[in-house]
Nucleic acid binder design. Structure first.
Lengths: 255, 255
DNA sequence: CGCGATTTTGATCAATGTCAAAGGTGGTGG
DNA sequence: CCACCACCTTTGACATTGATCAAAATCGCG
């Protein structure tokens, strides 16, 4: 396994032109305060697919804002298996945990080429004190993250493998599509493989493979080599919820 | 099923003498700001065991600080089963979710007699703006909550029923003991039954019963009628982690 | 003492894991 | 353009965990 060392940060991009200005923690800040933020940042980093921002147990003094690409967070179980906790899309705040100064309780690994904006942990709370707007945005984002993890918890404990997988792919599909609305019915790119699905849902890759085949043969969806197409949105969603979605949501799935 | 309507709030207790002053969101506030907080509160409420703070789908304009007692949060699945999300102990902030003004995405039900301090949702963010210290404490608490839910996620997806149950009970044991340090080896009171364990871990109550018997017959622990005693801390912990705890943690489990 | 709620037990079944081997697929160097 | 290799996916036989169902035992409490 190759681990790429994160390169020294480059000069930070101006926050004004930040590609995730609308999603990131600073989205609530008025433009005139952005200068102060820029002074705060450590700079941007560019990472290769499959490289780590950090490993579990490692101490860092940086948080990251994901600017572009996909990152996954995971932990290793006692017996060496990977438990994927979640997938982060641009705008996400990475590396935030209870014990900020202690070792990381999870690893962060890139699934695509990644660009992050590095933030010094040590002064995070000073920043929040000086810019309450930032703290409020953060509070909102945390609620969202929490809702997401809880949803995942429900998904994983209360459903069969088939529904879990359908639910999981639907989530990723929707999150991904929020950022890059695609032509309805078109394939969407998910930079993951069957092992990822297995480790995220607590299944074996073998059983994931068998279940994906079922879903495919039933004409619901095709997931192959990182591409997902939902063939029959209505029935696919029915696989996940008993309550149907509203028309608008359907339209966005496939027309 | 009897549902107790929450009584009208009483006069708020003075925050200065709040029993959870050291755990609650306001713990970082200097005493001289407490007056402002008191003006903000809606008052305290007292609820009976098994009554609901609110049900899933219900809209409320209050958040709650849990002052005393245990509360559980859960959702109902499509097929009517209960999925317990987590258990809250005094100091927890209840009812906070992404869509603050929308209907609740989970229900909150009391497991014991409960006392909560009601906070108006509508002005929460104003309050955070005025008292950044509060926002910072909230950010820290969220990190903790998030760590907890993630831990639960890992527990539920990556372990056998036996280890899940051991892990789950150990968690509750430790959290509960943090508040009420008990004589080592003594029984600890957990106001839950086997159905709760099942619904929290995604198992059936039948299998929980069988597994608890196993753990009991193996001399690891006894869980009966809401009381838990850990018989053999070393082996019990070994059931949960492969890495042993430090000596201090053992001492707190049972001497 | 009696009743509802909870827990236990046993028999049987379905969902998912394990293991092992074979097929694809894409990328790289010759 | 081919051959090879690493990685990912598929398949089949079999083992195991945990679910289901139904009935009995126990507990808590009025």
């Amino acid at each position: 396994m190759t681990i790429f060392l994160a390169p020294k940060p480059t000069r930070p991009l101006s926050c004004t032109h930040c590609p995730v200005r609308a999603q990131a923690m600073c989205r609530g800040m008025p433009d005139e305060h952005l200068e102060a933020l820029e002074a705060f940042k450590l700079g941007d980093r560019f990472l290769h697919p499959s490289s780590h921002l950090f490993m579990e147990g490692q101490s860092t003094n940086e948080l990251y804002h994901l600017v572009s690409g996909w990152v996954m967070s995971y932990t290793l179980t006692d017996d060496g298996k990977r438990r994927i906790i979640d997938f982060a899309l641009p705008g996400a705040l990475l590396g935030y945990q209870r014990d900020l100064s202690g070792p990381a309780n999870h690893a962060l690994q890139c699934l695509t080429p990644v660009r992050v904006c590095a933030i010094p942990k040590g002064r995070l709370f000073d920043l929040l004190r000086d810019y309450p707007e930032l703290a409020i945005t953060m509070a909102k984002d945390h609620a969202q993250t929490l809702d997401g993890v809880r949803d995942q918890l429900t998904n994983v404990t209360a459903r069969t493998a088939r529904r879990r997988i359908a639910h999981f792919l639907l989530q990723l599909f929707q999150r991904s599509q929020n950022r890059h609305p695609s032509v309805p019915g078109e394939e969407i790119r998910l930079p993951i493989n069957q092992d990822h699905i297995a480790d995220a849902l607590g299944l074996t890759n073998v059983y994931v493979s068998k279940t994906l085949r079922e879903l495919r043969e039933d004409g619901l969806m095709v997931f192959r080599s990182g591409c997902l197409r939902i063939e029959d949105p209505k029935r696919f969603v029915g696989e996940v919820f008993s309550d149907p979605l509203d028309d608008n949501s359907y339209r966005r799935l496939a027309g």
